[in-house]
Amino acid sequence: MPVRRGHVAPQNTFLDTIIRKFEGQSRKFIIANARVENCAVIYCNDGFCELCGYSRAEVMQRPCTCDFLHGPRTQRRAAAQIAQALLGAEERKVEIAFYRKDGSCFLCLVDVVPVKNEDGAVIMFILNFEVVMEKDMVGSPAHDTNHRGPPTSWLAPGRAKTFRLKLPALLALTARESSVRSGGAGGAGAPGAVVVDVDLTPAAPSSESLALDEVTAMDNHVAGLGPAEERRALVGPGSPPRSAPGQLPSPRAHSLNPDASGSSCSLARTRSRESCASVRRASSADDIEAMRAGVLPPPPRHASTGAMHPLRSGLLNSTSDSDLVRYRTISKIPQITLNFVDLKGDPFLASPTSDREIIAPKIKERTHNVTEKVTQVLSLGADVLPEYKLQAPRIHRWTILHYSPFKAVWDWLILLLVIYTAVFTPYSAAFLLKETEEGPPATECGYACQPLAVVDLIVDIMFIVDILINFRTTYVNANEEVVSHPGRIAVHYFKGWFLIDMVAAIPFDLLI
């Protein structure tokens, strides 16, 4: 008679799926529990143990900040960024110097990925580790590398530091407007667009060049630039800015003055950032001319202004700041037409079709709590990747769950009947059967004279019903998954307890 339990259901295979997918890609990662103190490590794979030199037993239950890997060259700011990422709910990448158990130093890129439950609360953290440099290539500990984003994938490793954006290309926007319009339909740009040429040739750093990471940081200074100062900065030398009595002219307006920039070969870094931020506020060169004239017309309804409409929906549905990093990277690809469009465009503009998908598509409701890094690593669709929660398995109709209350009560009843059979069957065979043979035949009273025979008949009927119930009862397979398919249940029961239950259900007393 089957006594099969499996009270692990309803099970959740999400954690096993993450481990299996990460292991298949030869990654070095740990999984931490966000619900406990210090976000203790609950799993670390073999790749991480080989990377740091510690065994799994030495890593388990330690804080996922990996303070046991810190050393003299470990930056405090990087460690603080990892700790801050564990307090938030967004994906974050941090470069930090770690030390192995043998004392060797290596520069590592740590990717902190939160995993949320159905309520939107962070319950786990996945920390992925990628070695960037070994100890002989690690720089000085005073050099802070965590304020910069990861290198873009479309640049060669040897040319990542030679990417320079020439400031004269930004200063000569109005001069290039006529050349853009003359391109017409034969050019790649839309009317009114501004073409910015980027020099990728390796050259020595000069005062006129600005690194790509500095251009990325310009967006942080746009908020500090007032509207009046932006307007004066875009007017140009024809209309000098008016300053109040006793007030000095704005240095932001002076930063885009061609006369002032041409007199000296070098520009201050602050002026460069502010000038680029001011130019980015204009949607095209037409807006710059309109600002000089004193009238700013409404933005025209053409394809170039609607190019950012799908980007707005993608940004609203993005799951991490990696989408913004990807957008900034692609927006700086050289030799393309940049349409400086305000994100607050007309909502009635139709979304044009684009061959290049900048932001990841909208994630469906079932995966809105899973970050983009987890979705990318697992390579699963929205119909396959579940949320991290207890999910009731989908069972067929008329199927009994093996952990249901009805099955528990039924098993206790069958257990009592088995005990009765084990006690009274030998007793009936030894004593009652002998008395029946010696006594007179009682054929007239039937079952009324033999109450134990009636009980034995009921017990046999219950055993037959138990066999039928076992054909529709779920079970737990070797992978700790609840199986509810009727065919698989029948095959599993035939290979197991079916023969024993059938022999126990045969009414031998009635056959004798």
Rank of each mutant, 00 (worst) to 15 (best):
R252C: 15
A382W: 15
C44R: 01
S278A: 15
T319P: 14
L69A: 01
R148G: 09
G6P: 06
I126Q: 05
I123M: 05
G226R: 07
K93C: 13
V377S: 04
L316W: 14
A290E: 15
C52T: 14
N146A: 11
P386F: 05
N257W: 12
G224K: 14
V195H: 04
G71C: 01
T305I: 07
V3I: 08
V3A: 11
M308K: 14
D67K: 05
P72H: 05
V196F: 01
R100Q: 01
D213K: 14
R56H: 01
P141T: 06
P168K: 03
G306R: 12
E357W: 06
P151F: 15
A175F: 01
S284D: 09
E357A: 14
A85C: 04
M218D: 03
S264E: 11
L267E: 06
T152Y: 15
V180P: 06
I336T: 15
V384C: 02
P168R: 08
F22Q: 06
T329C: 08
C265M: 15
I330Y: 14
L296Y: 05
I336Q: 14
F163C: 15
L171W: 13
S255F: 06
V3P: 07
S207D: 05
L171C: 12
A142P: 13
G88S: 14
R176E: 06
S179N: 09
V132I: 14
L225K: 05
F348L: 07
A160C: 09
T353V: 14
I126Y: 14
E289R: 08
Y99R: 01
P310I: 09
T270W: 03
S263I: 04
Y99D: 01
R356S: 11
I30G: 01
S272Y: 04
M308Y: 12
E90G: 08
I96D: 01
A285L: 12
Q247L: 07
G314E: 09
S379M: 14
T337H: 14
L385C: 04
F22N: 07
E214K: 05
E177I: 01
K28G: 06
Q61S: 12
N45T: 06
P299S: 09
R271G: 11
D144P: 14
L86M: 10
V374R: 01
L343A: 11
Y43L: 01
S250N: 09
R73A: 12
G149N: 07
R328W: 08
G314T: 09
Q81L: 09
V110P: 01
S55I: 01
K21M: 08
A121E: 09
A78G: 09
D111K: 08
C52G: 01
T174L: 06
S239P: 07
G345R: 06
S243A: 10
G224D: 05
P245T: 06
K344C: 10
Q335A: 12
H7V: 07
L349D: 07
A156V: 14
Q335H: 13
V325G: 14
S243T: 13
L248R: 11
K362V: 12
T375S: 07
S263T: 06
G224H: 09
A89Y: 14
G47Q: 11
S318L: 12
A217I: 10
E37S: 09
V8S: 10
R148A: 08
S209G: 13
S354V: 12
L69Q: 01
F29G: 01
R4Y: 12
N220D: 07
P352D: 03
T353K: 13
R328A: 11
S351H: 15
Q25C: 14
E230C: 09
L385A: 11
E208T: 10
F22G: 07
L343V: 09
P141I: 11
E90T: 08
R312H: 07
P2E: 04
T13M: 14
G120W: 04
R252W: 05
V325I: 14
L267A: 08
S266M: 14
G246E: 15
M291L: 12
S55C: 09
G88C: 11
G24E: 07
E208S: 06
I330C: 14
L225V: 10
K332I: 01
C39P: 13
C44F: 01
T74A: 01
I18E: 03
A203C: 10
C105L: 10
L200E: 10
A193C: 15
M124S: 06
C108R: 01
T371K: 12
L200P: 15
V196D: 02
D136I: 11
E208M: 04
P251Q: 11
R176P: 15
V195T: 15
L380G: 04
A307Q: 11
V3T: 11
